[in-house]
Design a protein around this nucleic acid. Structure first.
Lengths: 205, 205, 205, 205
DNA sequence: GATGAATGAGACTTCATTCAT
DNA sequence: CATGAATGAAGTCTCATTCAT
């Protein structure tokens, strides 16, 4: 089984390298050669593990999405109030992206330009996250914590607002610390769904 | 002046073609040949008028941005209330994109994937539009129509929410009619800045 | 000896697989992977038994040639008249190829395109078969059954005529049944060497 | 129009180079790079004129076929007797191949190994030439010059015999001079269709 | 000004072969 | 003996850009 382990390790190594290079140079400017070099493999080795460049990108995207999702779930689990859960999810995303700029670039920038082939997957990722938020907003509505708003749209709007803030940070470098962007954004989001203004118990993390 | 006019006409024709092809195939999948063919010119002709593919894309983007800005300004001019002005600007963007899907694709999708070279310009465009909204939000705050929120962030959040809705429409086709997305979004945005709920006087157009 | 037997069995299995794949996909389109898969072995296994792809093809060719030769010898043995022997040899080849289309493809098509490395072997195979025919034509000349023709050329011409018929069948599918091609061909060949026209006693087999 | 001429010249130059390299190295061993180098062009230049390697090979084959056909037609035109016409056609092919070994290699060897994609064209070429011979054999039958044989098969057999002789010369180098192979072959072919033995008036040419 | 042939760097991918396990 | 991961050279093809006409 040691062989399988080594292969798996190589698989991951390639994914790591790909994440790094895609994040650094962008999808189209990244060559399979670059990935091979960064992962200390040969080009053929890369193609042994993945059928092509697109597949690598997709795999990177998926792995990152799983990671991000785990962070969000974890953050959600540590809260009880529905609104706080949604809030925590947003903050988890923002914090994770703040720590892994590459990931943010991949999700919010590169994946779009990578070509039409990825659009479906992007939609899927956005939907998944939007639904996560919607779920808790629905609960909040049910519990009377917020007004009976269109949670679908609200979730999308929240996600969009977050994305814009992160994208702006990515492309322009403002604000210096991405985490600083959430404090002023939060009350806006809360008010948008009629949530009673409270002090957030969630800390950036 | 006839010479110059002909040159100008050709210039525009190439830009039209480029907008069409970029919107249809995406930035990287578009070849200069495609643009030449669509504009009934030769490749050399395209290179006479533009220094390269990037420059064409930038020119298309700029022209489109001017057009979009004009639409927004026009919409703003027809309103008097600051909030209504900001509201109208958003709706103008959405309506324009709804009518020119290609434009939306260019602004929100292709420009990102086109490469790092365009990031600066994207930031510029986002900033320009965000500032437009911020301006009127500031007025609204000054006039006491809305709470003294961080208008910078609010404007960005509004823009982000709008973008997400449009992007989603672009990539997934939902909702069928993009205009239908604004009705449920509007109250959220209004509430986010503490605007007194009113019936919008602005009609999609 | 069991070890050796198993090895031998594997050897044959690979050869069978190779024959099948080469015949199906052609030499260059066949990958060593294909052969490994078809023979239920691993690539390494194949390379244990054979030094390389060329060697496999050569081995397949040789084994097939031996088989074909055996069929021809058998057919020859069942005849007494020299002309009938040559005649029988041709028919045996044709019949065998009719039943094993793959073999025909290998011999008459793939072996040529496989590369210069195989040319010598092809010549050898053609010579071997031509000589077989020549031998009996020589006897026929000696016995006065046919005119004192240049048997070397006659043998080659016979072989060539047969090849063309078979190749045509391979590439175009005409005639439907390859065996049907021999009946009209036979009298031509016979007349070409001045053989007294007789009813063939040989039956396609 | 000078530009068109230059382009046409380049087109031909590439075809010349391709013929040379394909003939020298074989289809699969030939790289587009080789053709580019031999034609003193760039790789891109080759791809400007031809869509791909296969297309180049096909074009070479077609051009060569036209040339060969012209030679045959010319030879046929200079004879009056039907049998002599068919005879002349064969000899023309043989002579042309003798002078252009590369052509022979292309037609009889490389075209087969080039892959399934070419099979149809090969059949077409074989059929074209076979029909040419059949035409004149039919006339010979009609005029009573030869027996009422199956001219279709006879033509194919003649062609096959010729091919084998040429192929053998190509692969083994025997006989030294290909033209020497026709003298002993001719009477065989004639006898095969029951043609009254005569002295050929056709000279190798 | 316009044309389109030509360039050439570089992209992705394949695959025969090797070799550590 | 067998496995299959890994190698790397080589292949086909694309395309932004240049430039002679």
């Amino acid at each position: 089984m040691q062989e399988q382990e080594r292969a798996q390790a190589r698989h991951e190594k390639i994914l790591d390298a790909a994440l790094s290079v895609f994040g650094r140079k962008g999808y189209s400017a990244t060559g399979v050669d670059d990935i091979a070099a960064e992962s200390a493999t040969s080009k053929g080795g890369v193609y042994f593990h993945f059928p092509g460049k697109q597949a690598i990108f997709l795999a990177v995207l998926d792995r990152a999405a799983r990671m991000l999702r785990a962070k969000a779930d974890e953050a959600i689990a540590s809260e009880t109030d529905p609104i706080a859960k949604a809030d925590a999810a947003l903050l988890a995303v923002l914090s994770t992206f703040a720590r892994h700029r590459t990931l943010a670039s991949l999700f919010l920038v590169e994946s779009l330009g990578a070509g039409r082939e990825f659009h479906q997957r992007i939609v899927q990722l956005h939907d998944e996250f939007t639904n996560l938020i919607k779920l808790h907003l629905d609960e909040a509505v049910a519990s009377g914590a917020i007004d009976p708003v269109d949670t679908e749209v609200a979730a999308r709007a929240w996600f969009g607002a977050l994305n814009e803030v992160i994208t702006s940070w990515l492309l322009s470098g403002r604000p210096k610390r991405l985490e600083d962007a959430y404090a002023p954004l939060r009350p806006l989001l809360m008010r948008s769904v009629g949530a009673r203004e409270r002090q957030s118990t969630v800390r950036p993390g």
